[in-house]
Computed example of a mutant assay.
Amino acid sequence: MSTRRHFIRNISLSTLGAYTLMDWKPASALSFFNSDAVLKVALLGLGGYASRVAEAIQQCQRVKITGLISGTPEKLKQWGEKYKVPEKNRYNYQNFDAIKNNPDIDAVYVITPNALHHDQVIRSAKAGKHVICEKPMAISAKEGREMIEACKKAGKQLLVGYRMHFEPLTLEVVRMRSAGELGAIRFFQGLCGFRIGDPTQWRLNKALAGGGSLMDIGIYALNGSRYMVGEEPVWVTAQETKTDPVKFKEGVDETITFQLGFPSGAEASCLSTYNMNNLDRFFLNGDKGFAELQPAAGYGPIRGKTNKGPLDIKNPLPQQTIQMDEMAAILLDNKKPIVPVDGEEALKDLVLIEAIYKAVKTGGQVKLNAER
């Protein structure tokens, strides 16, 4: 057994009308890796989500926090003491290029507002480090291409924090679709959103976020439509609704519904919003069966069912723990993930986001080129 796909397939109890995968463990816990090397990571940006990632890394088998990069001296001190990162491995945004001479750091995880990703990823690559970047990878496809090129030129890998690409129930649905258990896929629905709070936060600042709900939460439905259907869309239509133009200023979308068409004839209908709760649902329908995840993209636990019964995969680990151990395997062992998490994968989403915004403005169908 060399991949999680084989693991899930071999122990799936589909013949009983339900999926009961007890005590699921990530590949790292099952010794699927080729080595015991540890990925030494510097966290760049020490905000709320970085805190979640840092705590999750404490349960990783092959990842260790060895560097910190922040513009706040107090955070560097507090985090350094908490995670035992020595002062020599703590940097600010002005001097972090010096990581080039630091063998304690293998990779930089960029966890900052969207508009900062471009320069920070390129600087990290030029410093000779692999880069993990939070999604969306950038605020434009042009920036995304420049980031990919910079990492290639430096001979370093660029990965993007698509944590759902390693989530066990999500991978089981992908396996079912790939194995033909759902038949020909006809339809996908992705609903993602929440009521956003503080109107002064960076997510509602176009200069930092690059957009609104679509860039932040709607990208889960957009990306999910691609790996759930298993194809790349060939057209998109979209509509925007804005009920609060004061909170959601020009260029910051509140609610967007968008539709995608795929080469096989399958279609997707998705919703992205900053003004509704109780969403977070994926539904995939084929001519032989269906799969539903709800919640589908939250921090867990993810829950699901299919036409064969409930998906009951027991996973005691945080999603970010699984993600980071799997990314260690990609960077250190050249492991190939079932669903890609590289820069090229993220670029496809950026191209689609731009097409959705164009469709909103034009009110018509936007054709998508095969060439991204």
Rank of each mutant, 00 (worst) to 15 (best):
W79K: 02
R5F: 14
A107C: 15
Q61E: 12
I99S: 00
Q78M: 15
M22H: 07
A127T: 00
D23G: 05
W79E: 03
A54C: 06
V110K: 04
T112Q: 11
R5N: 13
D104Q: 03
K64L: 08
L13G: 11
A37K: 12
S12L: 06
K64A: 15
N114K: 14
I65N: 06
T15H: 10
K40T: 00
H117V: 00
I11R: 15
K88F: 00
I65P: 02
A29C: 13
V85K: 02
S28R: 08
G67D: 12
Y93Q: 13
G17S: 06
N102R: 05
A54R: 03
I69F: 04
D36Q: 13
A50I: 03
V53M: 09
W24H: 14
I105R: 00
T20E: 13
Q78H: 13
V63Q: 05
P113H: 14
F7S: 07
F32Y: 14
I69T: 06
A29Q: 15
I57T: 12
L46V: 10
D23Q: 12
N114A: 15
G17L: 02
D119F: 14
M22R: 12
S35H: 10
A107Q: 03
A125H: 04
V85P: 03
K126T: 01
G45C: 10
N92D: 13
P26E: 07
F33G: 12
G17W: 01
L43E: 07
S12R: 05
D23W: 10
F96C: 01
I105P: 00
N101P: 03
P113M: 12
S35T: 15
L44P: 01
L16E: 05
W24I: 08
F32H: 08
L13V: 07
F7V: 13
S12H: 07
Q120L: 15
Q59V: 06
D104H: 00
Q61R: 14
K40Q: 10
A98W: 01
L116F: 13
F32K: 11
A54M: 09
